[in-house]
Write a protein that binds this DNA or RNA. Structure first.
Lengths: 107, 107
DNA sequence: ACAACAGGAAACCTTTTGGTTACATATCAT
DNA sequence: ATGATATGTAACCAAAAGGTTTCCTGTTGT
């Protein structure tokens, strides 16, 4: 159903530039050049970032003539959410947080 | 209110070992040695991971005699969730996903 | 008092990462 | 056809990341 994930999604979103690229693509689909215009680094560097985002299934690409249009592949964000939901028990438990803050205070 | 964040939280969760440490701490608070017993790497290496998790506010620590007990600091997970929620508009919009999948099919 | 235990710091090493420049390929416009 | 545009690949480089070993500092139990 979904493509094989060649790159770890957590490692993909670790880089600030890649996160900015995702933010840009959240607003609109963009070509490689259009994206790299937004950064002080070379187009080649942006191209590498896009490959990593692509290999972690965070973005998808479609050819349009000589351009390649990148777009958000939102399905994969669910994986991060799933992982985070593991910690919800603590987040929701205000008591454990309060306990922690008190201990912080005392130290 | 909250401590200064010396380390990027996204970069902190990028490492698989650090994610496993967080999973362990989700179950129970643990000392450095107790944590490093769960990994094939040295205690020193685990110690470095804990420093990074600590500096990104994902975990907290309290001294107990000669031991240092690490525990989840769930507050910080909210930051990741906030960032992810930015992409919810796409995730919730099944049409845009369908559109993407059709384009994938056609290519 | 002192041996054993818990943890961190320093110096070092190797691999990965993020970037570059130079070149190659494909498409478009005239 | 051919010059300009869009993108990717290869080779390379510096810095950061993740790991190690070797010490050093506290704390604990006897």
């Amino acid at each position: 159903m979904s493509a094989v994930q060649k790159h770890d999604v957590f490692q993909a979103i670790a880089d600030p530039t890649r996160r900015k690229i995702l933010m840009l693509l959240a607003k609109q689909d963009l070509s490689v050049t259009a994206i790299s215009d937004q950064f002080p680094i070379t187009r080649t560097a942006v191209s590498k970032h896009l490959r990593i985002l692509s290999e972690s299934n965070l973005v998808g690409m479609t050819k349009a003539g000589r351009e390649k249009i990148y777009k958000l592949h939102p399905e994969t964000f669910a994986e991060i959410k799933d992982w985070l939901s593991y910690f919800d028990q603590f987040w929701d438990n205000k008591l454990s947080m309060l306990k922690f803050l008190i201990e912080e205070q005392e130290k």
